[in-house]
């Protein structure tokens, strides 16, 4: 691999006239566009993983990138996640910006050693001499009727590792801009793509990212804050619409960055609405919802009208596709959670 890899495209080729107007893209298309631009901007950026090259990825996220940038910059690896992430460590030490893909959430387990023991702490261990600009894309969460180990929610595992950033986009616009940002960061970022939202189209404005730090108010409301990330944001927006029919104005907070977590943003919203419900697909016990409940309680204890409610998956292995609708928080379970908070009376 040459030290002077260059893009086959001229720097201006990626933008074109569409850059000034919002596009309508699926999250797949938004991520694909972002990856192409990251490779154009940074000749040291490399994409690799299982089937990401010639096939273009099992979800088509890297479609066409090998043809555009060549097999030296976009390439297939053996089926060995420990090798994919181990190679990322070496490439990052040598000055590259690896953008590996782990094909499915559950396939990250064999690479936990490389992620936790090396990527998360190399910068700290070397006192800043060896930063790890690794952008690890992981198609994550459930909802597509996939078999075992294809529907896991790994955020609690990763947010507990110092040195890693963890982010999950909720819609195509967020996906495009957060991946462009993650792909330019000097830190390791675990980029959790909500695979259940890959195909839904939405507006993407490449020219106007909006603020990308911290949480984002996806829908304002004054009676209760519904906190979610990834695929659960779209469901919470549906719930907010239904709650409005009942006269309850729900604010939906899209957390986006799971690490570092936006404690100020959580507290700001919860202190205004005085009620909070957190929704996630991961099992309940020691899920990220527990951390969020603790943060909101620490900062808003005297303002809250009720304990922070958690609507989550169950403490079981993620079930087979036939049962996942019973596992993932659905509209009624979220509404029940809201009702419990609304009914709470301080005794």
């Amino acid at each position: 691999m040459s030290e002077t890899l260059s893009s086959p495209l001229s720097p201006a080729a990626g933008d074109g006239p569409a850059a000034s107007a919002p596009l309508t893209l699926s999250m797949q298309g938004a991520l694909n566009r972002a990856l192409g631009e990251v490779l154009e901007d940074n000749p040291k950026a490399l994409i690799f993983g299982e089937d990401v090259g010639r096939l273009g990825g099992v979800f088509r996220i890297t479609d066409g990138l090998q043809a555009r940038f060549g097999a030296e910059r976009v390439f297939d690896t053996p089926l060995a996640e420990s090798g994919i992430l181990g190679m990322s460590v070496g490439l990052a030490m040598a000055g590259f910006h690896p953008i590996p893909e782990v094909q499915f959430d559950g396939f990250a387990y064999p690479a936990v050693n490389q992620i936790v023991s090396q990527i998360g702490r190399m910068n700290y261990r070397s006192r800043g001499a060896l930063p790890m600009p690794v952008t690890l894309r992981v198609p994550s969460f459930g909802g597509i009727r996939a078999p075992e180990l294809h529907g896991e929610s790994l955020e609690s595992l990763f947010v507990h590792v110092p040195g890693l950033k963890v982010v999950s986009p909720a819609d195509p616009h967020q996906a495009y801009h957060l991946l462009r940002l993650a792909g330019s960061m000097p830190d390791p970022v675990i980029f959790m793509e909500p695979k259940a939202r890959y195909w839904q189209k939405g507006p993407v404005d490449p020219a106007d990212a909006g603020a990308l730090e911290g949480a984002r108010i996806a829908r304002p409301g004054r009676h209760l804050t519904l906190i979610a990330w990834g695929a659960m944001v779209a469901r919470c927006l549906q719930v907010a619409e239904l709650a409005a029919e009942d006269g309850i104005e729900v604010e939906v907070l899209d957390l986006r960055w799971l690490s570092p977590i936006d404690a100020d943003g959580l507290a700001e919203s919860a202190s205004r609405t005085r009620r909070a419900v957190v929704v996630h697909e991961a099992p309940r016990s020691s899920g990220l919802g527990a951390e969020i409940a603790a943060l909101v309680t620490e900062r808003c204890f005297n303002t809250l009208k009720a304990p922070v409610e958690r609507v989550t998956g169950f403490d079981v292995p993620y079930p087979s596709g036939d049962l996942e609708d019973e596992y993932i928080p659905n509209i009624d379970r979220i509404l029940f959670g809201i009702q419990r908070v609304l009914e709470h009376r301080r005794g």
Binding site: V58, W199, Q238, D246, I331, L335, Q339
Partner: peptide, 22 residues
Amino acid sequence: GIVGTVPAEKAPARRVRLSAVL
């Protein structure tokens, strides 16, 4: 993709109604 299905976009359906004195 090779694994899984595209989730159907259904109109949101509910059985639970909210009631609260705010």
